[in-house]
Write a protein that binds this DNA or RNA. Sequence first.
RNA 1: GGCGAGGUAGCUCAGCUGGUUAGAGCGCUAGAUUCAUAAUCUAGAGGUCGGGAGUUCAAGUCUCCCUCUCGCUACCA
Length: 703
Amino acid sequence: MNDPKRYIITSALPYANGALHLGHLAGAYLPADIYVRYLRLQGKDVVWVCGSDEHGAAITIQAKKEGTTPEAIINKYHELNKVTFENLGISFDIYHRTSDPLHHKTAQDFFKKLYDQGGEFEEKTSDQYYDEEFNQFLADRYIKGTCPKCNHTEAFGDQCENCGSTLSPSELIDPVSTLSGKKPTLKSTTHYYFKLDKHEQWLRGWIENGEVDGEKVHQTKAWKKHVIGQCLSWLDGGLHPRAITRDLDWGIKVPVEGADGKVLYVWFDAPIGYISATKQWAEDHGKNWEDYWKSEDSRLIHFIGKDNIVFHCIVFPSMLKAHGDYILPHNVPANQFLNFEGKKFSKSRGWGIEQNDYLETFKEFPNKEDALRYALIRNLPENKDADFKWDEFVEFHDNELVANLGNFINRVTVLTTKYYEGKLPVATALHLAPVQKLAEQLETALEGFNFKVAIQLVNEISSYGNTYLQDVSPWKIWKENPDSTEVKDCLATCLEIVGLLSVFVAPFLPFSAAKIRRFINLPELRNGDWEKAHTNLKNGVSIYQSDHVINEPELLFAKINDRKDTSRLDLINAQKAKLAAILEAEKANDREPIKPEITFDDFTKMDLRTGTIIEAEKVKKADKLLKLTVDLGTEKRTVVSGIAKYYEAEKVIGQQVLLLVNLAPRKLRGIESQGMILMAENEKGALCFVSPEKGWGNGFVVK
RNA sequence: GGCGAGGUAGCUCAGCUGGUUAGAGCGCUAGAUUCAUAAUCUAGAGGUCGGGAGUUCAAGUCUCCCUCUCGCUACCA
């Protein structure tokens, strides 16, 4: 595990059916951008790949909904996300796409290799829903029906979006094909399964000890705790073969004879997208992609959000290992989730802000890119969920970027201009020891993916500058003696710090770094400049030529909380007002819509009766369930009810209830439930009994 | 119920393999300063490190139990 010769960095491929929000940015893209920019400035050989994930049923369904083609959808969002990333300074080496023929070929070759060598796949045949009219099997998302759990009539085959339950198509009541609108038939179909279970053993050694085949390949300590924890949890649960093909006409054809109408499942093809993106990049730049993916002295690092841990730490490594030639990820620094003003991002609720939206809304805001990057970096969900707040956005910007960093640079450039007409003063000594120490800590933090710590260290460097300037107070000395060497030493030191900051700030705030370079009249940053600057710092060599002249002072950042110009604060306040309005609207409109009309006959089918709970106990190993015995006068019924969160067992004894007595019995946690107790549920999900007036007898019919 | 991650100053969070009076930023209080975008600098107040028990010469840091938050999962008839 010596220093690697080259790096291959990946960021999760965004699904090309929508725009990305700030949470995505903070999860897999911004941290990777910092890391990659740092590596480049260190003069490393690094390729950072990403691109659009453009297959899967969700895209075809969306196309149908919008009355357009899958191609139109993916083209639209591929372009949008690509441009938005660029505008935010996210510096991928390539932003590829999985609809590219090169990717199709790469993924097919990958599949074919595993297929041909044998032992990795198995075929299984099962009954799946089939649309006779459209002549095709229906992916889970193509089937709609009534949710067996909440009776929502628009539930999908894989999930009910009303109650959030995970479903399988066969559970749906009255399934309907979304293609023809007709009832689908069951038909048998054969699919390929990747035998993940086969890889369980080496995966455990790899995750737990960083060892494969007796060889140490990474330091486990360098991996995040929650990443290892989640992987081990999966391994403990046992791995199972996973279907890697689907019956769909949108995607990558399964390259096997007789597999017509079948495509690779997206999670199989998407990670291979990293490889095809690298191939494309290598072709464009006259490089060999295999150096990056198949050479022991390369280092593969995946930047993802925590929802992708399993794919990148279990599934994809298994695929790579099964293939045989590839290296395994050296680290997967997955981030947790970013919330937005205390709640999850939610497109349907309008809660949160998308990247392109931000850029549009803050169009007039100078330095909008770095302001956003900074606020996100200060608050990255590195080890636990974090929260983006507009108030913090303003505080970070004004207190840290403006008052600390921007102000220091302004002080130095103004003083230099005033005293020396912008010429670098000749110094007898530079006072940079603390800066050198901070620079070393900064490198350690960046190499350990601790970007929050890293940005704080950058702050400390300019903070040191401010303190040092205050200590010397050259403006006092200069009044007495404009020729003082003390003043010259001080400003030369400060200019040196500004020069170093122009480099150290660059991975985080590339736009500001470029501006600082212009202020002090240094050329644009190039690969390797960090390494050079740090070496010079260690050797006491200045980054300036002796007769260097800086440019006229300018302000680096425009304060948000500016008394003379409220335009920027107005923007922030408008955002906050928008959120308040959403909350207000939701409060006013939190009742469920009335269900479709039914007939009196429908109603009379239900046999509702009064009853009294006479026994109650908690069901073991279930959070929500109480086992109740309800007295109906003529008989006693056992009912399992999901009310344990709101009612303790002892407290419900004696409670009068209404019971639906002719509901088909069903086993829950091994106990047969013979009826359903009526409860009212409020917007928070809290429950309350619906009962007859006190003293009513048991067993009377409700009509 | 199972699993994972957390619970450290008013707020947001650092605290690596256990070791001197537990740290940072913001906020607050007092003072200094004017080169600077009402910016900067210094000092101070403020924590029984979720609770309890244990191991140890020594625990925020290890073990066990309990509790709360978030996520995944089972379970809402």
